[in-house]
Simulated scan of single mutants.
Amino acid sequence: MIRITILEIASFLLPFLIFFIWRWQSNSEHPIEATPTLRLAAIGAGLAVLMMIALVLVESSRGGHEGEIYIPSRIVDGRVVPGRFVPAGEVEADDAEAGDTTEPQ
Rank of each mutant, 00 (worst) to 15 (best):
D95A: 11
G83T: 03
F16I: 09
N27K: 08
A96R: 06
T37Q: 10
R74I: 00
P36W: 04
M52R: 12
G46T: 13
E29N: 13
E33M: 10
P72W: 01
L40N: 12
E66Q: 14
S26Y: 07
I43G: 05
G83A: 07
L17K: 06
E92R: 10
F85S: 06
D95H: 03
A98L: 01
E97I: 09
T102Q: 03
G44N: 09
L40E: 12
P36V: 08
G44L: 11
I9C: 08
I21L: 15
E92H: 04
V91M: 00
E97M: 07
A42T: 13
L50T: 04
F19S: 15
I32W: 13
E29Y: 07
R62D: 05
T37F: 15
E92W: 02
P36S: 09
P15H: 04
I21N: 13
D77W: 05
V56L: 08
P31N: 12
P36K: 06
L7V: 02
G46L: 09
E33F: 13
A93W: 10
P104C: 07
F20T: 13
D94K: 05
P87G: 05
A88Q: 11
A54H: 07
T101S: 05
I69V: 08
M52T: 09
E92C: 02
T102F: 01
G46A: 11
R39C: 09
A54N: 13
L47K: 02
A93Q: 11
D94P: 05
L38G: 09
V91G: 00
S61H: 10
I18L: 15
L50I: 11
I75F: 04
A34T: 11
A88C: 04
L17F: 13
R39Q: 13
V56T: 06
R74D: 00
I32M: 10
A93E: 15
I21K: 14
I71C: 07
I6A: 14
H65P: 00
L17Y: 12
E59H: 06
E29V: 08
I18M: 12
A54R: 11
P72Y: 02
I69M: 00
S73C: 01
L13R: 05
S61I: 01
V76I: 02
E103F: 01
L38C: 03
R84Y: 07
G44S: 08
E33C: 08
R84Q: 10
A48T: 06
M52Q: 11
A42L: 15
I32E: 03
L7A: 15
M51I: 03
E8C: 10
S60F: 05
T37M: 12
T101F: 03
D95L: 05
P104Y: 06
V76C: 00
I21R: 13
G64V: 02
V91K: 00
A98N: 02
T37D: 05
T102E: 04
P15D: 12
T102D: 03
V56Y: 06
A34M: 08
L13A: 15
D100Y: 00
H30F: 13
V49I: 14
L47I: 03
G63P: 01
P82V: 07
E59G: 09
H30G: 14
R74P: 00
E66F: 06
A48F: 00
V56M: 04
I53M: 14
E97T: 03
A88Y: 03
V49A: 11
G89L: 08
V86D: 01
A10K: 03
R84E: 13
